[in-house]
Design a protein around this nucleic acid. Structure first.
Lengths: 156, 156
DNA sequence: CCGAGCGAGTAAAGCAACTTGACTTGGAGT
DNA sequence: ACTCCAAGTCAAGTTGCTTTACTCGCTCGG
């Protein structure tokens, strides 16, 4: 009986590999559902814009990138019909970037896939195990951040 | 009393944010300890070479990148004294990439930082909670991979 | 033997997703 | 009116990978 290599792996390694696997499975299922034209970073943009939209600078802050990088993402998504630039109600040079119905549809599909994946994991790991994993992660995040949640960035 | 935004966050989001935070803390501590010249991906290289070293092609497979990319990493690390290219005992065009003592020193420092970080998390979250998190992650990884563990790649 | 081919390594160019630096412009303050 | 700030944008540079294409040792079938 050999020892499990995962049992004495570093917590950091376990978290990284776990995230990579879950995200990979998410992407695979989204592709299979016909949503292969967007990468995870676009999902982060949608999350940042959900609700009332944001200006380019606000979006950049929420994503943790420069405003130029945010502008390039918006250019791309605008050209493909996922967002619109509207004049900002507060005026000035500001523009309000808002999601189109096409993006809302994508967000709903992503939500369904995520919930389906989580439900399957709950079934195979056991709901109690999954709940313990969720609360463990939530407490670890609280411990390392305090109250302000930082942006989820698409790189190490 | 407001609801906790983390309580109904997606598992995928929790895992990504948790990993990012733990890794960020690791990098901060390594920097503070005077090891600011290597990025996490170099740690992955060291892990892949630990023990008996590897050829460039083997390294590429373990990292999940092309052999050219692996070769570039080795070029960089060799120029900075962390690895050596030795003639391969089995001959041929093969070369054996091995860690230098400088890399072993770095590995030991990284191990100390990781264990220190994990110990602090154990103290603040409670050892039971941390153990539950570890086993939850390990089971999730088993569930999504079967037996073959894939490489931990430095991107989403 | 020997030459055909395979696998390891490398060189060069391409590409994606950022960054840095420099500029334009609307509005606020004084 | 002048100045200045902040939002947005244009352009160029950087990084870290990939794709394409090659060179070089070795093995093996004829």
């Amino acid at each position: 009986m050999r020892t499990d290599p995962l049992a004495d792996a570093e917590l950091t390694y376990l978290m990284g590999l776990g995230f990579q696997l879950v995200l990979g499975e998410f992407v695979r299922r989204m592709d299979a559902a016909g949503h292969s034209d967007l990468r995870p970073v676009h999902g982060a943009v949608f999350q940042a814009l959900k609700g009332h939209g944001a200006t380019g600078t606000e979006l950049a802050e929420r994503l943790g990138v420069t405003k130029q990088a945010a502008g390039q993402l918006v250019d791309d998504l605008e050209a493909r019909g996922y967002v619109r630039r509207e004049p900002h109600p507060a005026g000035g040079r500001r523009k309000l970037v808002v999601l189109t119905e096409q993006a809302e549809t994508h967000l709903r599909a992503a939500g369904r896939v995520l919930h389906g994946l989580e439900a399957e994991l709950g079934a195979s790991l056991g709901e109690a195990e999954l709940a313990a994993l969720r609360t463990g992660l939530a407490r670890l995040i609280r411990e390392l951040t305090g109250d302000r949640l930082p942006a989820l960035r698409p790189q190490w």
